[in-house]
Amino acid sequence: MKDDVIVCRCEEVTLGEIKEAIEAGARTVTDVKRRTRAGMGLCQGKSCEIIVQRQLCKQLNLSSEEAHPARDRAPVRPISFGVLGDEYND
């Protein structure tokens, strides 16, 4: 697969960037996230996390079990600051 194939579509991170991050020392999904922003967009990694996990397994020779998902945090769906700040409540 070519390096310019997109992995994280929300943040437009390419496979090449993921590869570089792992070569530079990233060992987990979270490591990759910190270095590339993959998984930090609107969908919070719902699509790309599994691709990043596959790439970690491939490059580091890990089993699927060893490539842990990132920690889940609220909000699990996008929410506007208006609602979060209770702007529309009486």
Partner: peptide, 21 residues
């Protein structure tokens, strides 16, 4: 949108088009 301590759930409620937490 999240579950917190003591089984507290934060919900974005949509009531007749008006959203609130």
């Amino acid at each position: 949108i999240g579950i917190f301590d003591d089984k507290n759930i934060l919900i974005k409620q949509n009531k007749n088009g008006r959203e609130s937490l």
